[in-house]
């Protein structure tokens, strides 16, 4: 039987495999925890599911330093959204400019290629020297994470717009900005969406890493929280926070990115 062709059955099949697999992993985990297979350190490395569950609740109710985990999540999201917004907006502005000026396009393509190779975290020391330890540093890193892949994708997308759409647009009198917004932009949606995905993935990783390396007291985020749990040996809390991080990732993927894709390129039969 070809499972990939059996539509709904394929979905049920995949889902059940995943559920069973997860249960097995949890079962093994619980067994290792209960039997204390790792000796005295067992409780640190494999806290029981029950204690992780309790820690999960504790994270939100009690939190750390009189702040619930909600506050840390809120702070992280605030910086993340600011960075994403600025990064994406700048990517559109610069990519748009590079369609207007050839010189700008050459320079910007060069800048994007170079900067894209630079992991944000490696920039951290430099940025701290320049800005000091402020929440702006995290925003800067998120911008850095998202702007280059986004720009690369937008510019590639513009380049790949079929000539026929451009001519159909010019035929009805579109030119300059109207051609850019009404033809080039929608025609490169597939590229823009994939730029969003890469940008989000990098920004999210970059954010957590930066927060873990140096937490900002004025704006403590999830990365700082999980790091504090480690220093305080609250290992159950640490695992519980990891689960929270995964949940946020899942929400963004399935609550935001997938619907965007479904309502644009998938709907238009344009997905790459």
């Amino acid at each position: 039987m070809n499972r990939s062709q059996s539509g709904k059955n394929g979905f049920v099949y995949k889902l059940s495999v995943r559920i069973v697999f997860t249960l097995v992993v949890l079962g093994i985990w619980e067994y290792v925890a209960r039997a204390r297979l790792l000796g005295p350190r067992s409780e640190l490395i494999f806290p029981s599911l029950e204690s992780i569950g309790a820690a999960f609740v504790r994270n939100f109710v009690k939190g750390y330093a009189h702040l619930s985990l909600w506050n840390y999540i809120g702070n992280s999201m605030k910086l993340l959204l600011a960075g994403l917004f600025i990064g994406i907006a700048l990517a559109f502005v610069f990519s748009g400019l590079s369609t207007v000026s050839r010189t700008f396009s050459v320079i910007y393509n060069y800048v994007v290629s170079v900067c894209d190779l630079l992991p944000g975290v490696a920039l951290l020391p430099v940025v701290i020297v320049i800005f000091g330890v402020k929440s702006g540093v995290i925003v800067f890193l998120v911008v850095h994470a998202v702007i280059w892949p986004m720009s690369r994708n937008i510019m590639d997308g513009f380049m790949a717009v079929p000539m026929i759409y451009v001519e159909a647009g010019r035929n009805i009198g579109l030119k300059g900005a109207s051609l850019l917004f009404k033809v080039y932009l929608p025609a490169s949606t597939a590229y823009i969406v994939s730029g969003l995905k890469v940008g989000w993935a990098r920004a999210w990783r970059g954010l957590i890493s930066a927060e873990m390396i140096f937490g900002i007291a004025s704006c403590p985020g999830i990365g700082l929280f999980i790091n504090q749990m480690r220093t305080n040996m609250n290992n159950a809390e640490m695992y519980a926070t990891l689960i929270v991080i995964i949940i946020i990732g899942v929400i963004v993927q399935y609550g935001i990115l997938s619907p965007i894709e479904k309502n644009t390129v998938k709907k238009w039969g344009m997905s790459r």
């Binding site: 026929i164 159909a168 009805i172 009198g173 929608p186 025609a187 039969g269």
Partner: peptide
């Protein structure tokens, strides 16, 4: 100019991000 409209050979001359209605409506609007 819209006073001379091309109809091309290729089937891909419609805007894929617009419905059939949109493809006819959009040029009128523009």
């Amino acid at each position: 100019s819209p006073d001379r409209i091309m109809v091309f050979q290729t089937f891909e001359q419609l805007f894929p991000w617009k419905t059939v209605f949109g493809n006819v409506d959009f040029p009128l609007k523009q």
